[in-house]
Write a protein that binds this DNA or RNA. Structure first.
Lengths: 269, 269
DNA sequence: AACAACGGTTCAATATGCGAACCAACAGGA
DNA sequence: TCCTGTTGGTTCGCATATTGAACCGTTGTT
């Protein structure tokens, strides 16, 4: 791993829930040496990726990332095409909805939207999604580049008792997803959360990301599952269209087939 | 210069006007070795800062920057981004300084900062600034949305003898502001106050607001004007940067031109 | 076929990053 | 007051990761 990679990985520890980090704290989070981390922080500071909070002396993200984000969005307008379908999806299902994008071998959160319908709801506070344990990640394995599966199988860490930890388990799950057209992660990443997702495609015709609904497992029913799936289809179609892509016919067929007899499927599928 | 710094500097070459760059092209732009640049690009790609356009094979910014921007926006709201430059501006000019934002057709005060240097000083105690009579308002007319002028001309109320009250007067003033890059309101809102302002831009590339200095007219001199203008430029650059924006080149050009021969201009300009 | 430009790779030399150890400042607690 | 545990920051010798000239294979143009 290059020095640059290690440096840039430090930025992943900043989030809305932990927006400012001091040197020692970051060393613990990243499990790194203090001197090294300090030099890394200095490099990030002098390039504008981090700045110091003048009062707390801690480090926080710098203004340059706003600049880069604007360029990215101007280059690949993704975020703008997601807002409306996402709000509609959260409203229709009453559950937290989010969109992820696949870049290289990593699944990133792009946007998320909570529904106020229930007091308890799933919170999407991670930046990158494990391939084997989340609905979005499984969707990428099922419909994304074929070399992703081999990569995922090298890192089958268990998050809950339900997390698939063998290559065979994972293959089976992905096979089901290919057949149904919907990613499903039943308490495999967090104990109380059940995720459902549908793939989204871009103008190159490749898998681009997934739109997902994270439901509280305790209130999940076959009825809710069907409602979520129906609206996932709508959202996936909308977003795919907004991104200039088209849905492969086999995806549409899988969806149609799944929905036509979804009442006969149980929630564990 | 560290390896990481050199790597991160590569990202600066991506912009809305040049959103995708190939290896050789980037080597020329950055005046770097090809092998080195290639490794740098790989580091940026595996951390998600860059991704390959699957059709053109060129590099472009990755989705992770959107994530970082969201965190930054949540960490440092707009108001926080003006504090430090505003204090510096007030300190350097010895005059009351403030920042306004344009929202719809209204110019609001966002923050203000007084300097203790003089016993008499301008007090910014209004919440919204008239478009045709204040430096901030005139700045919005000169660099903001084009439909603002028509709106302003419908309400040319006179505050002092110097307030422009005809559409033609206002057009002339705004024309001067576009040419110089600085808003100027010479006793047109309050009898004893002369305001100078510079525009600030946000991540959308649009006019976002103005940073201004309100000076007591009686002690205004060409020397003070020049000092204020120089520090307005610094503050406008800083705030624009903190808000994730970039200054249009024509603004920078206008400033450079104005400052290069400001000693030949009188205070009434 | 010749040519140029492209992305990508090799390898010796050395610049660069590394981390244990160390400093100074600060903040409770006894 | 001392003691202890923080914090951010620095030093220095060693080892290795980084460097760039040169090279390679492919693609597209003339």
């Amino acid at each position: 791993m290059s020095s640059t990679t290690k440096t840039l990985e430090l930025l992943a520890h900043f989030s809305t829930s932990r927006p400012e980090i001091g040197l020692s704290q970051l060393c613990r989070l990243a499990k790194r040496d203090k001197a090294t981390t300090y030099r890394h922080l200095q490099a990030l500071e002098e390039t504008g990726f981090l700045e110091r909070n003048p009062v707390s002396k801690k480090y926080r993200l710098g203004p340059i990332v706003l600049q880069l984000a604007r360029t990215r969005e101007a280059t690949v307008p993704r975020k703008a095409g997601v807002e409306a379908p996402l709000v509609a999806l959260a409203g229709a299902t009453g559950e937290t909805s989010h969109v992820t994008v696949l870049s290289g071998k990593t699944v990133y959160a792009l946007a998320s939207c909570e529904s106020p319908r229930h007091g308890t709801r799933a919170i999407i506070d991670i930046e990158t999604f494990p391939l084997h344990a989340t609905a979005s990640g499984l969707c990428a394995l099922a419909f994304g580049p074929t070399d992703l599966m081999a990569f995922a199988q090298k890192n089958l860490c268990g998050f809950t008792a339900m997390t698939p930890t063998t290559a065979q388990e994972l293959e089976n799950i992905v096979g089901t997803i290919r057949a149904t057209g919907f990613g499903c992660a039943n308490r495999s990443y967090e104990d109380e959360v059940l995720g459902l997702s549908a793939p989204v495609f871009d103008q190159t015709g490749h898998y681009a990301g997934a739109v997902s609904v994270a439901s509280v497992a305790a209130r999940f029913t076959p009825d809710l599952k069907r409602i979520i799936q129906e609206h996932l289809v709508i959202a996936a179609r909308d977003i795919t269209r907004n991104w200039g892509g088209t849905l492969p016919p086999q995806i549409e067929e899988a969806w149609a087939k799944t929905l036509s007899h979804s009442n006969t499927l149980d929630t564990a599928s």
